[in-house]
């Protein structure tokens, strides 16, 4: 993430707009911004609007309409807890509560140390291994799927990823 910090939002957005700058590329532009930051910084949205002429309200419309986009910075790892039918029937709501409890998340989606986020997600299509959760890193480089998780396993996963995140953050990744 450091390399991103060194580059200003202006630079990052300009690079992306160098590749895509049409109105119909908006979804992809926002996806690329998010893969740089893990979320959509307001500054970046404004810059896109200035450079492309797409009204800021239109950009925010797209950014808030689709689930993938985040407007707030998430933790280093993000738990995506599937809320599909099979996962619902097999108790993923309980797992979701356990994750939040274990990580001490009371308000919002992110733990107070900023290391881990917990979000509800739509079906990953792994329903036969329900309940399922996916863990992704903020930069999108890491992606892990966990199937057939029970409450015990959920607690273990929460602690494992928290310690992985704290190691990564400390080592400056």
């Amino acid at each position: 993430m450091d390399s991103v910090k060194e580059r200003s939002v202006d630079e990052v957005v300009s690079t992306i707009l160098g590749k895509y700058n049409q109105r119909h590329h908006l979804m992809r532009i926002l996806q690329e911004v998010q893969s740089n930051y893990g979320y959509l910084p307001r500054e970046a949205l404004e810059k896109i609007s200035q450079s492309t002429g797409i009204p800021l309200s239109d950009i925010i419309n797209v950014a808030t309409f689709y689930h993938q986009y985040r407007l707030e910075i998430p933790g280093y790892y993000i738990f995506l807890v599937c809320m599909g039918t099979a996962c619902h029937l097999k108790g993923n709501q309980d797992n979701y509560n356990v994750l939040r409890n274990t990580l001490g998340i009371k308000k919002g989606n992110t733990s107070s140390d900023g290391l881990v986020s917990v979000e509800k997600a739509r079906c990953f299509g792994c329903c036969s291994l329900a309940p399922v959760m996916m863990v992704v890193s903020r930069d999108g480089c890491e992606r892990y799927l966990h199937g057939n998780v029970d409450i015990k396993e959920t607690k273990k996963l929460a602690l494992t990823y928290r310690s992985m995140a704290s190691k990564k953050v400390r080592s400056g990744e």
Binding site: M83, C123, G125, C127
Partner: peptide, 11 residues
Amino acid sequence: EGDPGAFMNRL
């Protein structure tokens, strides 16, 4: 494929 419970397209 957005129907929760359907994954034949993914498969």
